[in-house]
């Protein structure tokens, strides 16, 4: 039970200080951890190595709690920066939108509701099981991301478009108070994805 204890402890630490509303009004929108620009990888001469290195940087976003929490390996998403299991218990359901009686939209509206720290988006949902990232290596996630049989039939261009225009992906950089945003900016992330695609979309070895 020890890992669980620690995870819970971390989750609790988030609750420190005041009410939800205090957070909403006094905490400015945080920036996530830094992300290197795509250009900073141009010094890697070998294209495949460069591409894989770019995906390494992309991986900082994909494995961030804002993204990983809703790409679970099980039927249950996680929540908070500590990535604890979602409370209440919600599941993917037949279409990624939850179970009858307790769908995502029961709580998650079309946009964030900051007074209650409730995140929202027009199509708040879990990623399909075929896109589960939890517990996988970056190399595995990379292969999965490119695999059109698992990624919703998207080619590289469609993937780049998806991650730069989809509102739920963009939410990762605007997650509301009490949550660390995804690393860098979405523009940086989009540029990294584009550079990765342009350089042959190589995957890291592990």
């Amino acid at each position: 039970m020890r890992p669980l204890l620690l995870a819970s402890a971390a989750a609790l630490a988030l609750g420190l200080g005041g009410t939800a509303l205090t957070f909403a009004q006094s905490a400015p929108q945080r920036r996530g951890p830094p992300l290197q620009d795509a250009a900073s990888f141009s010094s890697i001469p070998n294209q495949q190595a460069r591409s894989a290195a770019l995906f390494g940087e992309i991986g900082k976003v994909l494995t961030h709690p804002r993204c990983m929490n809703c790409h679970p390996a099980t039927e249950r998403p996680r929540q908070t920066d500590a990535r604890r299991l979602h409370q209440p218990v919600v599941v993917r359901g037949k279409d990624g939108h939850g179970a009858p009686g307790l769908e995502c939209a029961t709580c998650h509206g079309k946009q964030n509701y900051d007074p209650a720290r409730m995140p929202g988006d027009g199509h708040w949902a879990l990623a399909p099981a075929s896109m589960a990232w939890e517990g996988k290596t970056l190399g595995q996630i990379c292969l999965q991301l490119k695999d059109q049989s698992r990624n919703g039939g998207r080619d590289l261009a469609a993937i780049v478009k998806h991650v730069t225009t989809d509102t739920l992906v963009l939410w990762g950089w605007n997650p509301g108070p009490g949550r660390e945003p995804a690393p860098g900016t979405n523009a940086q992330f989009g540029a990294l994805m584009q550079a990765w695609a342009d350089s042959g979309a190589a995957c890291p070895a592990s």
Partner: peptide
Amino acid sequence: ENKKPTDQDIDLAMNG
């Protein structure tokens, strides 16, 4: 939505 829910259906709908 579900005329004959199982215990698990009830858990998933009611645990909120």
